[in-house]
């Protein structure tokens, strides 16, 4: 066990890391809430969805195809396809969770939204990932997501076009920043080029979540191919 002062410092570091993605997610959450109202999904249903599913892109995709009564099988399959990347992400971050008990892992993994996962991996590339850091990062982001989605159902049309303000670029910028944080890693350029090429080509011929899976597979295959035994 770490002394309480370490716990507090790690938790505080997590909170600090959460600041940028948490502020960045608010416009999207408001927009998601507005879309829910458009689709006749109530405030309570939207809050419940955000609390249980906690996956922004999947929730947007689901609301986009929402109808009444809600087609649970079609929505479940859609969300499964959109979220398949989380299989890779959980397998990867679990290797960084050596300091987590099984209970802590079971509490942490459901919170593995893209941003939480990405900042956890970035942290783990520099120092050991601790439960205190993880929950300091995940909890404010999670609570903000639920509350802002619910608020969006009430605010409705205030934020109709976040693209006009460049809000959609906030996450692109966050991900660019995180990607470059790995630039000293072996096989970085091969992974980057293969993933970008495969994702873009698949996106052009077949828009949708397939591009994410294709890019991921191409990227890790390129890294495996570029790997040399006994690197200096």
């Amino acid at each position: 066990m770490s002394p309480p002062s370490d716990l507090r410092a790690e938790f505080r570091a997590g909170l600090l890391t959460a600041l940028a993605p948490t502020l960045g997610v608010i416009p999207f959450a408001l927009l998601l809430g507005a879309l829910a109202t458009d689709k006749g999904v109530s405030t309570a249903e939207t809050a419940l969805m955000s609390a249980w599913v906690f996956a922004g892109s999947a929730q947007f995709a689901a609301l986009d195809t929402w109808s009444h009564p809600a087609p649970w099988l079609a929505l479940g399959l859609l969300v499964l396809v959109v979220n398949l990347r989380h299989v890779f992400m959980s397998a990867s971050v679990l290797r960084r969770m050596e300091r987590f008990s099984l209970g802590q892992r079971l509490l942490a993994l459901p919170l593995l939204a893209d941003e939480i996962w990405a900042f956890s991996e970035a942290r783990a590339a520099r120092q050991p990932l601790t439960p205190a850091f993880f929950f300091g990062l995940a909890l404010p982001f999670y609570l903000t997501w639920i509350l802002s989605c619910a608020a969006g159902t009430l605010l409705g049309a205030l934020l109709r076009d976040p693209r006009a303000y460049g809000f959609d670029f906030a996450f692109i910028a966050i991900f660019v920043f995180l990607i470059l944080g790995f630039r000293k890693q072996g096989g970085f350029l091969a992974t980057l080029a293969a993933s970008a090429a495969a994702a873009t080509v698949i996106h052009v011929v077949w828009p949708g979540p397939a591009s994410i899976i294709a890019g991921t597979l191409a990227g890790i295959l390129a890294a495996a191919a570029a790997h040399r035994e006994d690197p200096r």
């Binding site: 890779f88 992400m89 893209d114 991996e121 980057l192 293969a194 993933s195 970008a196 052009v204 994410i212």
Partner: peptide
């Protein structure tokens, strides 16, 4: 390579 591969695939298109 997983983080770079997933994050790149998410934003490249």
């Amino acid at each position: 390579a997983m983080p770079v591969a997933v994050l790149t695939a998410l934003i490249a298109p």
